[in-house]
């Protein structure tokens, strides 16, 4: 379980709307709990979509150089990289096959639907150990839990 504040949710929604009709992407920073299955997302770190401009409407990449910078910043501030968020413009907040093929275990993946420029559904996922599927981590509206 990961605690997900309203402030973090709002920040992701804003990023998704800003990037529309392209995909936004970024890193969830916070602190893990006793193990990698629980933690608190304290802030987001938006990252420029590293894909070619003509592909950004349905693809994103956080380039390794950017990932290194974020990880170093997180370590310097005593925070953990909990996972990543990205938007699906005019597309359901469900992980695609492309998402699964490129995902890593351990991290939380948050997907936001942006429909006609308006942020809508936000969902959370984690890759199964055998890479065969994503496991949904339902959002708890009351407690902002993943």
């Amino acid at each position: 379980m990961i605690t997900f504040s309203a402030k973090v949710k709002s920040a992701i929604r804003l990023e998704g709307e800003r990037a529309y009709p392209d995909e936004c992407c970024g890193v969830l920073l916070g602190r893990f709990g006793e193990d990698e299955n629980c933690g608190e997302a304290m802030e987001i770190f938006p990252v420029s979509n590293g894909r070619e401009a003509e592909e950004q409407y349905h693809r994103f990449v956080i380039q390794p150089d950017d990932f290194m910078k974020v990880e170093m910043e997180a370590r310097g501030r005593g925070l953990d990289v909990l996972g990543f968020y990205h938007s699906h413009p005019d597309h359901p907040a469900l992980p695609s096959d492309y998402d699964r093929e490129h995902a890593l275990p351990f991290y939380f993946y948050v997907i936001l639907t942006v429909e006609k420029g308006q942020a809508r559904t936000l969902t959370g996922w984690k890759l199964a150990a055998d890479r065969a599927r994503f496991i949904q981590k339902p959002l708890n509206e009351g407690g902002d839990m993943l």
Binding site: R59, F60, P89, P95, S96, Y98, H102
Partner: peptide, 10 residues
């Protein structure tokens, strides 16, 4: 590198 994006859903 962290990549993904919308497409056909499972």
């Amino acid at each position: 590198a962290i990549a993904g994006g919308g497409g056909i859903c499972p």
